[in-house]
Simulated assay, not measured.
Amino acid sequence: MILWNFFCITEGKTIDTITYELIRSDRKTISLQVKPDGRVIVRAPQRLAKYRVVRFVKDHEDWILKQQKKLEDYRETRHVITDEERRDGVQKALKIFPERTAYFAARMGVNYGRITIREQKTRWGSCSSAGNLNFNWRLVLMPPEILDYVVVHELAHRKEMNHSSKFWAIVEQEMPDYQERKQRLKELGGQFI
């Protein structure tokens, strides 16, 4: 592994430094990757001249800086959950999810199996074919209408185990503004996952 610095120069002054890791292999093309921690990885063919690698990085300078800025902004807005918040959140979830699920199940005319509270990395909820429901405890950190949307979404799977138009009609019947809630979950979700 070799780290290289690429200096962006304007009127004789260095304005930015792009440090990148160059990985050479038997590949045929050159590629660029910005890792979640902001590191830049350049993968290049074994025999590609160094000046061509530098040119490639320079040609993609704006894109690299834009990606690094996005990642930095994301890290600043992301909520870091403490152990105390986790403990309290799980306890709150163990109380809230059974209440909200029972409420909406009665309104929607569906039944369900057991409710499990989890800490999933990429899911807010799920429904098994046996009717068991899983919910991500982190939903209790969001506004109640978002939590309710996920509960209704999973209960709708008790009637339709897919995301067809029939499924979304079931969700909409119970929650006419579900699309706004779904969008809000996308916007807020990245802060808590």
Rank of each mutant, 00 (worst) to 15 (best):
Q46C: 13
K186F: 01
W124R: 00
E154G: 06
G125W: 00
G38C: 07
R114F: 13
P36E: 02
S128L: 01
T29P: 01
T82I: 02
A44K: 01
H79D: 02
E119T: 08
R118C: 09
R55S: 13
F6V: 15
G190Q: 11
G113V: 07
S25I: 01
I9D: 07
R181T: 05
S128V: 02
L141F: 10
G89F: 01
R118I: 12
E172A: 15
L133A: 08
R114W: 12
G131I: 03
E145H: 13
I23A: 11
V171M: 10
V40L: 09
P98T: 01
F7W: 14
R86S: 10
V140R: 01
V110G: 03
P144R: 04
E61R: 12
L139H: 01
P36M: 02
V54E: 13
F6E: 15
M108H: 04
F192D: 03
R27A: 01
R55W: 07
N5Y: 10
Y20V: 09
I15K: 12
V40S: 02
I2M: 15
G12E: 11
N136P: 03
T77C: 12
K50D: 13
G38S: 10
V40K: 00
R86I: 10
L48C: 05
K28Q: 07
H60Q: 09
N132I: 05
D88C: 14
K35N: 10
K50R: 13
T29Y: 00
T82V: 03
N111I: 13
K182L: 04
D83R: 12
H79E: 07
I170A: 14
K69V: 09
V90K: 08
I117Q: 00
R158L: 13
T82L: 04
K13F: 12
S129A: 12
E76I: 14
T101C: 10
K159M: 14
D16L: 11
K121Q: 11
D26G: 15
D16W: 08
H60G: 06
N136L: 03
H163R: 05
E187Y: 04
Y74C: 10
V54C: 10
A169D: 14
H163K: 05
A102T: 08
F7K: 14
R52T: 07
K92N: 11
E160V: 15
D26H: 11
L141D: 05
L141P: 04
M161S: 08
I81M: 06
L139I: 03
C127Y: 00
R100E: 04
W124V: 00
T10S: 14
K70Q: 13
K70P: 08
R114S: 15
H153M: 08
C127M: 04
K182I: 03
T29V: 03
M161E: 06
R86V: 06
K166E: 15
H153S: 06
T82A: 03
N134I: 04
Q46W: 12
T116D: 13
R87S: 14
L133V: 08
I18L: 12
D73W: 09
F97Q: 02
L94D: 09
I96F: 03
V152R: 04
W137N: 02
R24M: 04
